[in-house]
Design a protein around this nucleic acid. Sequence first.
DNA 1: TAGATTAGTTATCACTAACTAACTTATTAG
DNA 2: CTAATAAGTTAGTTAGTGATAACTAATCTA
Lengths: 202, 202
Amino acid sequence: MAKRKSAENRKHEIVLAVLKQADKVGPDRLSATMIAREIGLSQPAIFRHFPGMKDLWLAVAAHIESVMKKKWDKALDPKKEPPEQLKKLVMTQLRFIQAVPAVPGILFSRELHAGNKGLRQAFFGIMGTLHSRITQIVREGQEIGHFTNNNSPEDSAFLIISFIQGLIVRWSISGKSFNLVEEGERLWGIQMKIFCEERGVS
Amino acid sequence: MAKRKSAENRKHEIVLAVLKQADKVGPDRLSATMIAREIGLSQPAIFRHFPGMKDLWLAVAAHIESVMKKKWDKALDPKKEPPEQLKKLVMTQLRFIQAVPAVPGILFSRELHAGNKGLRQAFFGIMGTLHSRITQIVREGQEIGHFTNNNSPEDSAFLIISFIQGLIVRWSISGKSFNLVEEGERLWGIQMKIFCEERGVS
DNA sequence: TAGATTAGTTATCACTAACTAACTTATTAG
DNA sequence: CTAATAAGTTAGTTAGTGATAACTAATCTA
């Protein structure tokens, strides 16, 4: 018999085990048996804490949302200039993904896309929140003259999120073979000025 | 008994069925039974054409690679100016993904990430080829003075691929709720000048 | 300390996965 | 026309899935 823990602690432990194992075998191949083995419990013990796998995934999403929002809050410092705030937020996001590398896989899992509508809504909400935070910073930057282009802050935010997502995709496909944050820092500087003097685009 | 076809034709038919069904249920939940049902065969018929699922996925990757390369070749027109070539290549890629929407899912499948090393290498190779083609165009553009920044063409290409991938990720998570090519065209113009006049970046 | 509560267990169910063996029959080469 | 080839079949195996029922025992509270 495994040592007992309070339901609350055990639930948290299970969620962490899911994130750890989902990175190894993928969200859609992760079974209750694997999760249980990871923390030294029997398989039915998982279903004592969560009615079904769907609920377990929703708990995982809630955990990710909570941690991300905390990190974003921490990263934002209204005393700093918008460009620096922006960079900090982007790097925070990259650092988080590197620390919890299961997230991109969950974003593309079938659990999310086909199986579990609530899970997709949760992640859609998370992305929306990130988008609106970035939009806000860009808007402030424009107002005080940091970004003098007249693009909509919303579209600028989309491009910044693309920068993040695209980098993560490459990192993922490469087998996580480079440091996400370092590569992000390197390219961020370039992204901020690339093609500025380009001519003749159609 | 289903009507007979040559092994070659049947293999091709199976690959197309995989791409169709993978978009619906996801690569990791796609079973031989579903594929067989799609084309009106019995489940074991699949294993007559492919020794195992791994081999089937490799055939899918080979198909994707072949089609993509053809499209890239078609999109390139050395008579046109590099910026226009670039845009055309990017839009071609977006058009392809919209036509074969299973691809992003495969890119993040666990079949690719955990189960099937060859599959990951195949896609890594495809991305590498795209990267070098973009790099080449950027380099030419720099040489004849279209892109007057001094960023490495390789890094510029990474950023352009990020633009593509990031857009695809957003499209995917949104439930493919917008037109990928149209949104790509719209944002491409912005990407080409965003933050140009930004000051004070750290 | 006695008894309620509840985190854990084992055993099992119904189901689906990839895959195999053995058989059948359509197509085609000689 | 016949015989070989090979594309299909049915009927299984083995292994793993989520989930449930019934039981056990550690912990908490009165």
